[in-house]
Write a protein that binds this DNA or RNA. Structure first.
Lengths: 173, 173
DNA sequence: CTTCAGAATAGTATAATATAACATTGCAGT
DNA sequence: ACTGCAATGTTATATTATACTATTCTGAAG
């Protein structure tokens, strides 16, 4: 099955097939670096390291997992360390939160502002990001009808990735 | 602004306009009762009371808010009381979890299995449920392309409801 | 009627996620 | 040097959720 560990097969959208993940990381990191200097925001060591950690795999990582890694890197062990880095990275659009998992994943499309959508495997917890339209048509329509102004949306589908295909029952109600 | 309190205006889909919320509650409760007996599941007092509490408003309620109310009703004060009731209600499709808020809302369409979608006001936290297709087209397409089997999906849009229309910046990154 | 199995509830403890609040540092602009 | 702001350090606590064990209730089998 897919497992999202660095260098192994993952189920992330563009990572369904084995790929040079080193390239993957470099590409995104370079883009982030470029965007940050362009926007004159402070891409500090802890922020950069947090992004590097999340980029190691296409799987979502919980905040406390990230914190542990940051601590190992000498950036401190208290929750605000991780949450501040995440706030920044999410603000810049370099990282997304996967609400369904309460976990965080590096954005694979940092070059464009977009509304992400995720395919989440309930078995291996791999997360595939796709880059789609701002919101499902039905929601847009309902919003128009009721005078609701959509600012951002969350689209997450849970199920089984190809590699986890056979057994078990649905996780949702 | 909309506020979702019982008997006042709310921004929930069918509740954008003032309505007889008593009818609203009765209708859903009756339907739940019917479905429960049809499915031979045990709609016990604590489960029923939990649903009644959530039905009081079209806003999402956190688990510990529900717990407090259940405790006030004599059903116990420990977290499992609320989470067990929620597990049941969600399993039956009578309640949805709003992932973005980590909060729970009574389903307004208990008569049909469906994938819910929500419009969440970031100011008044009102939640409007709409009843839509299983997943956004783009996700379905991506799923097909990668062999991912979608079992359920989450669609949540955050923004400003009509009543909260003017000021402030976006909450998302 | 008794016993047994399963569902539901009660209760305890703790895990996991997230933020508030305040102190300190370091640097850019004046 | 001073000042103002962004970032970081630190402590504490809030919020959300689950694991686990024991007990009670109820209905079906014997």
């Amino acid at each position: 099955m897919a497992n999202g560990k660095h260098g192994e097969r993952t189920a992330a959208a563009e990572a369904m097939r084995p790929h040079d993940h080193g390239d993957c990381i470099r590409r995104v990191l370079d883009e982030a670096e470029r965007r940050a200097s362009e926007d004159k925001v402070n891409f500090t060591p802890v922020r950069r390291h947090a992004l590097e950690i999340l980029l190691e795999s296409h799987a979502a990582m919980p905040a406390y997992g990230l914190l542990k890694r940051l601590d190992a890197g000498g950036f401190g062990s208290q929750p605000p360390v991780a949450y501040r880095a995440l706030d920044f990275l999410i603000g810049q659009g370099f990282v997304h939160k996967v609400e369904r998992l309460n976990a965080y994943v590096a954005c694979m499309y940092p070059h464009e502002t977009h509304t992400p959508a995720f395919l989440i495997c309930r078995t291996c917890r791999s997360v595939a990001e796709t880059c789609v339209s701002p919101a499902p048509a039905a929601l847009l329509q309902e919003a128009r009808a009721t005078g609701f102004a959509i600012e951002c949306s969350v689209m997450e589908a849970e199920g089984l990735c190809r590699d986890c295909a056979p057994g078990a029952g649905a996780p949702c109600g």
